[in-house]
Simulated scan of single mutants.
Amino acid sequence: MAGAVERRPLRADAQRNYERILAAAEQAFAQQGASVSFEEIARRAKVGSATLHRRFSSRRELLEAVFHSRVEALCARAGEHAEASEPGAALVAWLGDLSEYATASRGLTAILLGGPDADLLEHDDGCTAKITATADELLTRAQHAGAVAPDVRAEDLLALVSAISLAAQERDGGLAARLLEIVIGGIRRCGAAPPVP
Rank of each mutant, 00 (worst) to 15 (best):
E170V: 01
L120W: 12
R153N: 10
A147T: 10
P150H: 13
L121T: 02
L121M: 11
T128E: 12
A168C: 05
D125K: 08
R171M: 09
D151W: 13
A145P: 11
H144P: 00
A167I: 03
G146I: 05
P150A: 14
A145Y: 09
A133I: 02
L166R: 14
H123Y: 04
L160F: 13
T134N: 04
L157A: 03
T128Y: 11
S165T: 06
D117L: 09
P116Y: 04
I164Y: 08
V148R: 09
G126K: 07
A149K: 15
D119L: 02
S165E: 07
G126N: 11
L157F: 07
Q143E: 04
E122T: 11
A135D: 04
G126D: 10
G126Q: 10
A147Q: 10
S165Y: 08
V152F: 09
A147V: 06
R141F: 00
D117V: 01
A168E: 08
L138W: 06
L166E: 14
D117E: 14
G126I: 05
P150L: 06
D136A: 15
D124S: 05
L121E: 05
E170H: 13
R171T: 13
R171N: 08
L120V: 01
D124N: 07
P116R: 11
Q143R: 11
T140G: 02
A118L: 00
T140E: 14
A159K: 01
L158W: 02
L139K: 12
A135N: 02
G126E: 10
V161M: 06
L139A: 09
A118V: 00
H144R: 14
A145E: 10
A133Y: 04
V152R: 13
S162D: 03
P150D: 15
L121A: 03
D117I: 00
E137R: 15
V148A: 08
Q143W: 04
L120Q: 13
A129D: 15
D151A: 14
D125T: 01
P116G: 05
K130N: 12
A163L: 12
A145G: 15
H144T: 03
D156H: 13
A167F: 04
K130M: 12
L138S: 06
A154M: 11
D124A: 02
T140I: 11
G114T: 03
T140F: 13
L138R: 04
A145L: 09
L121W: 06
G115V: 03
